[in-house]
Design a protein around this nucleic acid. Structure first.
Lengths: 343, 343
DNA sequence: CGCGTTTGCTAAATAGATTTAGCTGTAAAA
DNA sequence: TTTTACAGCTAAATCTATTTAGCAAACGCG
C-alpha cells in the first residue's frame, strides 16, 4: 500500500521486468509475436510481467503512432426520447463491434454547441463522425471535410455528405391512412385532421407533411394551412397550438398527426386535462414511438423509426467506394407498440 | 481541389509556412506567447498560417505529451429513460464546462460489457470515471484504482469509491405518505399496498422499500412479503407480477409503489388493458419521472431524482482532499410533473 | 570596452507506443 | 557458389505537441 499512486505501467516497465526490449513486448502484447517468431518462453515471461504490473495499453500513444484513434464520434440533440436514445445505443453497439470506442455527445440543438463539439471531436481525431438531428449539417460536413474525416448525416440530410433518413413520406402516408380508416369506421369526418409539431422548411417535417397530404388527397381532401400547426420542437409550443385549435373549433381534431415525440409531450399535456369522453372521440398517430405514450387513454398509432437499420446503412456509407449513386438512403419505419398489434 | 485528401496540417507545417520553429508555433497557438515575449508580428504570421492551413490541434499528441487526455468517462446501463438520459446530459454539460470531452458509454446492464468498457475507457486514459447504475461496482472500482484513475459510483453505491445516490429512503417515505393520504381521503384501505419492481438485495431497492415500510408503520401497518413484488428490471416481469397480484386479489392494489420507470413500463402494459373504472380506484407512485407516464389516466405521483445536483456532488467527490468523512452523498429527490403541481 | 540584462526565438528532450531494418549464423534452394 | 530463408531478438525511427534550457543579438550602464 506504501506507494500506491505511482505511474501507470508502460511497455518499458514490462521490458525491464521480463528482461526483453520494448519492441518485443509490443509484438507479444499485440499477438503478432507468432509472425515475428518470438520464443514461446519469452512471450510467456512478457505476458506474465504485464499481468503482474497490471498493464493496460495507452491508446493515446498507440493512436499517435498509428494515426488511428480508435474513436467513433456521433453528435445528437439529446437523449430524452426513444428515437435518439435507441440511435445512440445502436451506434455504440455497432462501434464496439468494430473495435472502436464510441463517443456520443449531445448538443441540445444549439448551433454553437454543434460547432464546438464537432471541432473537439475532430481534434480528438475520431475516425468518422455521424451527425444526427442537425437541421443544417452543411457547415459541420465542411468541418469534417477539411479535416478529411468521413461523416454521415442522419435523420436530417444534407448535400455535404451521404445521408441516412427514415422514409418519412411513406411512413406518414401509412399513418394517415390508418387514421382515416379508423375515423371512417367511426363515422367521423376526414375534414378535421390536424398535423401538429415540426418545423416548416425542415426536411423531416416537410416530407412527413407531404405523406400526410398524399394520403388525404386519395380521399379528395386538400388540407389547407389551417390543418398544419408546425409549432416547432418545444413541447410547450405544441400544447399551445393544440389548445388554440381546440378553442377555435370547440373540439379536438378527428385525426391528429403528431410530427414527433417532442410535440406529443405538449399535445398530451393539453389533452390529459380534457374529460375522458372527449379523448374517446379522436384518433391520433405519431411519427415516433414511446412505451408510455402508446398506453394513453385514446387511440394512438405509433411508428418506430428503424434505428438499427439506419445505423447499419450509416456504417455502410462509410465504406471505401463512395456510393455516389445513392447519397440519400431511405429506411422504412415500422409500426410499434400496443396499438400496432391490433391492426 | 487537386490533392484534397492530404494529411492533416501539423505545427510543423505551420512552422514551415510561417518561417518559424515548431516550438514557437506551439507557444503562439497556446496563447502563452506573451509570457515568452514573442513578437506580435511573428505571432500574427503564425496564426494566419494556421488559419490558412485549416489547422486543428491533435489532442492525441497533446494528451500523450501532457499525460492528460482531456477525456471524462461515464458508464451507465442505457439511455432509455429520463433518469439516465438526464444524468448523461448533466454529465456532458458539467464535463464541457471543465474543458473536458465527455465519453458516455452504455453497458446494457451486462457485467462483461461493464468490465470491457471500463478497461477501454481506462486505456483511453479518461481522467476519471463515473460508474452509474452498476449493482456491484467494486470490481470496476478496483480496475480504476489499479490504473490510478479516480472514480465515483452513482445511483448504486459501493465501498470501493465515493458514492452519490438519491435519498431513496426519504423519497420513498414521502411518496408513500402521499399515497396513504390520498387513499384515506377516498376512504380506501391502507392494507392493500403493493411495492412493485426492483431487485431484492440491491441498494436502491432496499432503501426504497425501507422508506415504503417506514411510512406504513406510522399507520401501524406492517407490510409482509406479499406486499413486495421485487420483480427485477425487465418490464415484462413487472407486468406479470402485477397481473398475478390482480388474479389473486381480484383487483388492483389500493396503493401501488413502483420502484422505477422500467417497472412502470410493465405495470402500465397490464393496467392499460383494464376498464377505465378500475384505474380510477387506485393510486400509484413511482420513484422516477416520465412526462408521458405522468399523464396516464389514473392518479400517479412521480418523483424526479435531482440529477443535476447528483452530478455536482459527483464532481465534488473528485476534488483533491478525499472527503473521507462522507463517502456516501445523499441527494434529495423532488416531486415532478403534472400531479406534483396538484399537491 | 566590458559586463550584465533583455529580447526573440529555437534545438532537443519528452510522452508511450508501433514497425522496419538489421544483427549473426546456419541450412536449404537456386 | 550464390541467394534466400530463418532463428529470435533489438535499435532506431516515427507519430505530434509541449516545455525547458539556452543561444545570439541588441541594449544599458559606468
Amino acid at each position: 500500500m506504501a506507494r500506491a499512486a505511482r505511474r501507470k505501467a508502460t511497455i518499458y516497465d514490462i521490458a525491464t521486468a521480463a528482461e526483453a526490449s520494448a519492441s518485443t513486448v509490443s509484438l507479444v502484447l499485440n499477438g503478432t509475436w507468432a509472425r515475428y517468431r518470438i520464443k514461446e518462453d519469452t512471450a510467456h515471461r512478457i505476458t506474465e510481467a504485464a499481468k503482474t504490473l497490471g498493464y493496460n495499453v495507452n491508446l493515446t500513444a498507440r493512436g499517435l503512432r498509428l494515426s488511428r484513434s480508435g474513436l467513433a464520434g456521433m453528435i445528437l440533440p439529446h437523449y430524452r426520447n426513444r428515437f435518439f436514445a435507441d440511435l445512440a445505443e445502436a451506434f455504440e453497439s455497432e462501434a464496439r463491434q468494430r473495435g472502436l470506442c464510441p463517443i456520443v455527445v449531445s448538443t441540445q440543438r444549439e448551433e454553437a454547441v454543434e460547432a464546438t463539439v464537432t471541432r473537439t471531436l475532430l481534434a480528438q481525431r475520431v475516425e468518422f463522425l455521424f451527425i444526427t438531428g442537425v437541421p443544417n449539417p452543411e457547415p459541420l460536413d465542411r468541418l469534417c471535410a477539411s479535416a478529411t474525416v468521413p461523416c454521415v448525416n442522419i435523420d436530417l440530410p444534407g448535400p455535404g455528405a451521404p445521408s441516412v433518413v427514415s422514409d418519412n413520406r411513406a411512413g406518414a402516408r401509412h399513418l394517415t391512412n390508418i387514421m382515416m380508416e379508423k375515423v371512417l369506421r367511426r363515422g367521423g369526418s376526414l375534414e378535421a385532421f390536424l398535423y401538429l409539431g415540426g418545423v416548416a422548411g425542415e426536411y423531416a417535417t416537410d416530407t412527413r407533411v407531404a405523406g400526410f397530404v398524399d394520403a388525404l388527397r386519395t380521399k379528395d381532401i386538400e388540407p389547407g394551412p389551417q390543418s398544419l400547426a408546425l409549432s416547432g420542437y418545444p413541447p410547450g409550443n405544441a400544447r399551445d397550438a393544440l389548445a388554440s385549435y381546440y378553442d377555435r373549433h370547440g373540439r379536438l381534431p378527428s385525426g391528429l398527426f403528431i410530427n414527433s415525440i417532442a410535440a406529443f409531450e405538449g399535445a398530451i399535456e393539453f389533452a390529459s386535462r380534457l374529460p375522458a369522453a372527449e379523448l374517446e372521440e379522436f384518433v391520433a398517430c405519431c411519427f415516433d414511438w414511446d412505451p408510455f405514450a402508446a398506453c394513453l387513454p385514446f387511440d394512438v398509432t405509433m411508428l418506430r423509426q428503424d434505428v438499427e437499420t439506419m445505423m447499419e446503412r450509416a456504417f455502410d456509407a462509410l465504406k471505401p467506394e463512395p456510393q455516389e449513386d445513392r447519397p440519400l438512403v431511405l429506411v422504412p419505419a415500422v409500426l410499434a407498440g400496443r396499438k400496432a398489434a391490433e391492426l
